[in-house]
């Protein structure tokens, strides 16, 4: 009994702030100081004000575009490299494996400034390229693909080769359907990481129409544009959280398993 009491208390401490956030965003300004679970004097005005103050719709589309395109490219490039590392013998294979491990242990603090300078020199500042290209390959996803491909029977590949399949068709048509859990894990990790990333966009994007959601909401919260309008700020936070929370409701188990597998990798 005590155990359930403790667990319920803990769960409440994780859930209550989110519930408060949603109801506060739907409350009038004077309802914001209340701690209730239900909106006080319910109104949409915070959301109406928010959309008139900041181009959140555009930022939403930017975030979707960046996250979807990058995740797609991570899957394609990761599957190719993972397959080569798992199922092919070639000179330099171990070297590449060590490079991947090296990349994973490298703290981002060292690459941050030089990567920004690269973006400047490539003329990618204020473009989608700056938001996408640095993330289109990901060491962890290559390792996860490699592991999944190593677990598949060679007969599957041999049969496909006899049928005259090229390597790309083998990877994407024959093998990938057999490792869908891995594909889902990588999709979730990449998509979530990109959706929530705020630091890199703050560095490479200055131009409002190219900004992603976390960046726009951050600048809105830090810079004085919220003009002490707490309700609008909270509404913006709700909008930023909503898409990923909805995905989480549908793929809850996969989210947890994916994050756990990335944590255990280190």
């Amino acid at each position: 009994m005590l155990r359930y009491l403790l667990l319920t208390l803990a769960a409440a401490s994780f859930l209550y702030p989110f519930i408060w956030m949603v109801s506060a965003s739907l409350s009038s300004e004077n309802g914001l100081s209340s701690l209730t679970l239900l909106p006080v004097e319910p109104t949409w005005s915070n959301y109406v004000n928010m959309f008139s103050k900041i181009p959140l719709g555009r930022a939403f589309l930017n975030s979707v575009l960046v996250a979807v395109v990058t995740t797609g490219l991570v899957l394609v490039s990761g599957a190719m490299a993972g397959y080569a590392l798992a199922r092919m013998r070639f000179r330099g294979r171990n070297l590449i494996f060590y490079l991947i491990i090296f990349t994973m242990t490298l703290p981002m603090q060292i690459t941050l400034i030089p990567n920004y300078i690269s973006m400047v020199k490539l003329g990618w500042v204020d473009t989608y390229f700056a938001l996408i290209m640095p993330f289109v390959l990901n060491s962890l996803s290559i390792l996860l693909f490699r592991q999944a491909f190593m677990g598949l029977p060679q007969a599957l590949i041999d049969a496909a080769r006899l049928d005259g399949c090229g390597e790309l068709r083998i990877i994407f048509q024959i093998l990938l359907p057999n490792i869908l859990p891995t594909v889902l894990t990588i999709t979730i990790l990449t998509f979530m990481g990109l959706w929530n990333e705020a630091l890199w966009p703050l560095i490479v994007i200055r131009d409002e129409p190219t900004m992603t959601m976390p960046q726009l909401v951050t600048l809105f919260s830090v810079g004085g544009r919220a003009e002490a309008q707490l309700g609008v700020k909270i509404a913006a936070a709700v909008m930023l959280a909503l898409p990923i929370v909805v995905l989480y409701l549908f793929f809850q188990r996969h989210f947890i398993r994916s994050m756990a597998s990335s944590g255990l990798k280190d």
Partner: peptide, 18 residues
Amino acid sequence: RAAFFLPVIVSGVVVTIL
């Protein structure tokens, strides 16, 4: 489990504003 995990998936921006 799902309740404890909720803040993990949400952006640090949201958690900070909250």
